[in-house]
Write a protein that binds this DNA or RNA. Structure first.
Length: 485
RNA sequence: GCCCCCAUCGUCUAGAGGCCUAGGACAACACCCUUUCACGGUGUAGACAGCGAUUCGAAUUCGCUUGGGGGUACCA
């Protein structure tokens, strides 16, 4: 029972859920799924200044939208709560005192200025900065004096000098010389724990067995291991993932565009595609099939096979993948998701059935949902602007086609797409045989008249959605524009 | 400055000493399909950062160099 696998994601709510955090969450989730372990969500809101409730909500919503559901967390509870760090403030001093009493930590009365000076000295001598231990053996008299002055001590962890090694699940053996670390602060003088201390206490108490996180935490790891050991706790396994970089190889930040999962959703990306894409950053399927659900990925997942290098976030493949998901998605669901992107149009003009039809015939070229907006204006309104196709419509060919079309379409059944499809095919053949018009030339005339464009969705589908009256109205209007005007 | 991590096509990657004249996906380009755009199909081009060492043999092991990333806080 003590061997239960427990992993966690511990975002700090100082912003919306970052795509990088989402990837870390995914790998944790996959590991839990694969091993039958538990996936835990902990909110690290220690930094009251930057924490906002809307960010907490965003983190919850994004994780859920991505399908990364947690077994224990602030909202669902669990046996090792509370799962919100700000509710755990009374826990940390107890453990700090324990370390103090056992000689693993000591009070430090140094001021920022003193510390600053030590640091400058270190860079000047081309040495790593290590705290001087000035306060390690402070005399009781001096201590008294500091207290009288009103100074408040921080608590430092005493770092013994030795070589520390651990076996990283993704990077392999990692070595550190702890003499380069220096005695670090675990409790600030204001009584709150530092990050490195709080995580260890939380992870220990929550019985986290495997810590999978970004490689920006590698240098924190030896410090944390030291604390675990001093506390006599079992040291968890660690696995450090490479980071996601922007195309310019810098950290992915707001100036590169979308960074939060919710930003991507607003841009018209599907969460299924997003999570699939992000899984491929560092992981690759053994069967070569890259389009997979999270559960399918979990089956195939091996943490030691994750790439240990950084990867660059490029939109090309995401776009392709998003398009793949759009093409395969259930049409009703897709329509629901697309509606918010159609706010420019009066959707009451179309029945739900026709709206779905419209989505079905226009989804093919989409890469993001957002793009549909520019592809569908001709489905709405009575007339359509013809400026861009004026020349095309005033050719003899077009006039011929449109006249004949008007004549024939009177009798066509606009309710039946397949029939219309065949009628159009007949029309093409007729003009090809009689006048040698190319099939696409015939179609261009009709398309231009009805949609005001030379490209777009399948004509038969368009005609069915627009209906006979509006179609003929538009073709007549097209016949009345004059050449060169 | 100091410490740590990383290094295969433009990008994501396969590759765990001979199976590699280095495979796939996206992007690019060409052609085919076709009522347009697209989708789809078929092809083309494109990489082991450099140098040493180990070995009969290295993309795969080791060292150095270079390049990139991260950390260096009483932030998380």
């Amino acid at each position: 029972m003590t061997d239960e696998i427990r992993v966690r994601i511990a975002p700090s709510p100082s912003g919306n859920l970052h795509i990088g955090t989402a990837r870390t969450a995914l790998f944790n989730y996959l590991y839990a799924k694969k091993t039958g372990g538990k996936f835990i969500l902990r909110i690290e809101d220690t930094d009251a200044e930057r924490t906002k409730q809307e960010y907490i909500d965003n983190i919850f919503d994004s994780l859920k939208a991505l399908g990364l559901n947690w077994d224990e967390g602030p909202d669902v509870g669990g046996n090792y709560g509370p799962y919100t760090q700000s509710e755990r403030f009374d826990i940390y001093p107890k453990y700090a005192k324990m370390l103090l009493d056992n000689g693993y930590a000591y009070e430090c009365w140094c001021t920022n200025e003193e510390l600053e000076r030590e640091k400058e000295e270190a860079v000047k001598n081309h040495k790593a900065y290590v705290y001087s231990r000035k306060c390690l053996n402070i005399t009781p008299e001096l201590r008294e004096q500091y207290i009288k002055e009103g100074r408040k001590p921080s608590i430092r962890f005493k770092v013994d000098h030795r070589e520390l090694t651990f076996n990283d699940m993704v990077k392999g053996e990692l070595k550190f010389d702890t003499s380069l670390i220096g005695d670090f602060v675990i409790m600030k003088s204001n009584g709150t724990p530092t990050y490195n201390f709080a995580v260890v206490i939380d992870d220990m108490l929550m019985k986290i067995s495997h810590i999978i996180r970004g490689e920006d935490h590698i240098s924190n790891t030896p410090k944390q291991i030291l604390i675990y050991e001093a506390l006599g706790a079992k040291v968890p396994e660690f696995g450090h993932l490479g980071m996601i970089l922007a195309p310019d190889r810098s950290k992915l930040s707001k100036r590169h565009g979308a960074t939060a999962v919710s930003d991507f959703v607003k841009e018209g990306y599907l969460t299924d595609a997003l999570i699939n894409f992000v899984a491929l950053l560092g992981w690759s399927p053994s069967d070569g099939h890259e389009i997979k659900t999270v559960d399918e990925i979990a089956q195939d997942f091996r943490i030691n096979e994750i790439s240990s290098s950084n990867s660059i976030f490029e939109y090309d493949k995401l776009n392709w993948m998003n398009g793949q998901y759009i093409k395969k998605m259930d049409i009703k669901k897709l329509t629901d998701m697309i509606i918010p992107f159609l706010s420019d149009y009066d959707l009451s003009e179309l029945s739900r059935e026709k709206l779905e039809k419209m989505v079905e015939i226009t989804r093919e070229p989409l890469t993001t949902l957002k793009e549909i907006k520019d592809d569908v204006p001709y489905f709405f309104g009575e007339s359509v602007p013809l400026d861009e196709v004026k020349e095309l419509l005033t050719t003899e060919l077009s006039i011929n086609v449109l006249n004949r079309f008007n004549e024939l379409a009177q009798k066509w059944n606009f309710e039946d797409e397949e029939e219309i499809h065949n009628d159009l095919a007949d029309l093409r053949t007729e003009f090809k045989e009689k006048f040698g018009y190319k099939p696409k030339e015939t179609m261009w005339a009709i398309r231009a008249a009805v949609t005001g464009r030379t490209r777009g969705a399948d004509m038969a589908g368009i005609l069915v959605i627009i209906g006979k009256d509006k179609t003929l109205k538009r073709t007549n209007e097209a016949l009345h524009i004059k050449a060169g005007v």
